[in-house]
Nucleic acid binder design. Sequence first.
DNA 1: TGCCTTCTGTACGCTATCGAACACAATTTC
DNA 2: GAAATTGTGTTCGATAGCGTACAGAAGGCA
Lengths: 301, 301
Amino acid sequence: MSANASFQTAFTVPLASAKTDRALPSMPAPAQNRLLAALPRGNLARLLPVLERVQLLPGRIIHAAGEQARHLYFPVAGIVSRVYETEGGESSELSLVGNEGAVGVSLLLGGFSTPSQALVVCAGDAYRIRAASLTEELDHFSPLLAILLRYTQVMIAQTGQMAVCNRYHSAEQQLCRWLLSCLDRSSSNVLTITQEAIARMLGVRRETVTVAAQTLQRAGLIHIGRGHMTILDRVGLEAEACECYGVVKREYQRLLPPASAVGGAGVQGSRDPPDLRAEEVHARHALCGRTGTTSQQAAVA
Amino acid sequence: MSANASFQTAFTVPLASAKTDRALPSMPAPAQNRLLAALPRGNLARLLPVLERVQLLPGRIIHAAGEQARHLYFPVAGIVSRVYETEGGESSELSLVGNEGAVGVSLLLGGFSTPSQALVVCAGDAYRIRAASLTEELDHFSPLLAILLRYTQVMIAQTGQMAVCNRYHSAEQQLCRWLLSCLDRSSSNVLTITQEAIARMLGVRRETVTVAAQTLQRAGLIHIGRGHMTILDRVGLEAEACECYGVVKREYQRLLPPASAVGGAGVQGSRDPPDLRAEEVHARHALCGRTGTTSQQAAVA
DNA sequence: TGCCTTCTGTACGCTATCGAACACAATTTC
DNA sequence: GAAATTGTGTTCGATAGCGTACAGAAGGCA
């Protein structure tokens, strides 16, 4: 499993072009990542010179388990999965990351590596920042820190929900959840992935995925193709999915309210995100945005 | 399940006594919490006035799901469990916290609440700091931040491992893991807890715990009592447990090397922790302790 | 065009755990 | 000391998903 090959350091974007991204739909600006988009314009601008653009190629391991991360990744398209692999070779997804998040928060937290790996599930692109540059940036206590910490909490919620889901929910429910999660991170309703790969994410057998998918197809919710799945009925999937999907989604919306303009499809970069104004978020300093409600002590109930 | 009652704000310790705790074995000093113990002496001293001592009573909910946390807790004895409860009333443990950790990192991360609750599993005591005080403390970028962030990563690893464990490992393996985890956080090898409670943690039926425990008892690893379990053969339990136990333990030791003197039994407070010198940990600033190895790029393999 | 690889579909016995139901033992309460 | 409550032990059928094995279909490549 020394799957790490060499980082596919595709090509580096001349960052001047980042502001004119609307003219280059094939080369998304960093602001297509929602965390970056949530930064005040000045902060993002300062960050641009240290952001390097890379391709996310399916199957590639961005961070190997136990190895020091060298970059923090901000996907703008594509999907990355944090996966733990057991000694026996079984695997389970711990969380899913798309353009709403970042890969490698261990750099932020100070651990630099994790027992799990991060691998690309669906092709896309990301901007990444080197660990050293991140350290420098955080030195100045930019709002980046506050946003990354909040995202970290979302990731914790996601991971926890994965534990719950693994315990209680059927393969079919989990498949629904997984498809919806991918859909949220994808601009199309066709997911290019094999049932085998999905099985590895969910920690079930490929055959189990096949059976569950067929059930969904018979219900008219999806269409199964060879190497890809098409979502036909989003609402129907949500009805079949377990609560875990909604729990995580609400937690994200609570902690990182959608910079709505930056959603799935077309995007214009550094416009002021309407809901998440970073100035508000890091009220006192970069941490602990709000200090309210702490003065009311007494009982909870 | 509005289980929140009122916080059992037992009694506040006159903090002058914190330094003379050796004379008061029944009233442990804050430094019996390993995170606090890892702080440089000056930092801990500054923190003392805002630390309030409270009892941890079994069954009490420290943080209710979805409600704003008002305090960050540093247990010095006893065990707290982060538990998610499904809409159907099923529950699964997400992580376990004893004197090696803290409860309420959402205050640090800026989310202030989580979808899971934190409840006391084994009786003990904790020091807690109010959210507002924590904010102030972090304003000065004390080493507290670096330590708490590292601990956060341990918690993430723990939660992720829970997902893996829920997916793949037998009830018996999980019981071994759970007993060992508790043992690590307890000064005695008698755990005062019912099988029913363990079942809720593991997300299995009580009967399943009974059967698994009997197997372990027949193997001479534990002794079952009414409302408590005694661990007889720690090494044997480790052999039966799944890898998850070791993975989490190693991750803790990597990120927060043991302030060895502060272990289970007798403790002397603010002596310099030999392995984790906070000055080193927060090398550049409170975040991203080390910047090493970032200059060697190239391939991973 | 035909071969080979990859991906999907189907079948069947096996096992761990669940759900439900009940017996009994220990502790607390009156 | 009796009654009620709480905790543990035992049984038995049901079932979701596993392990294994194999068939067929789609697409790549010579």
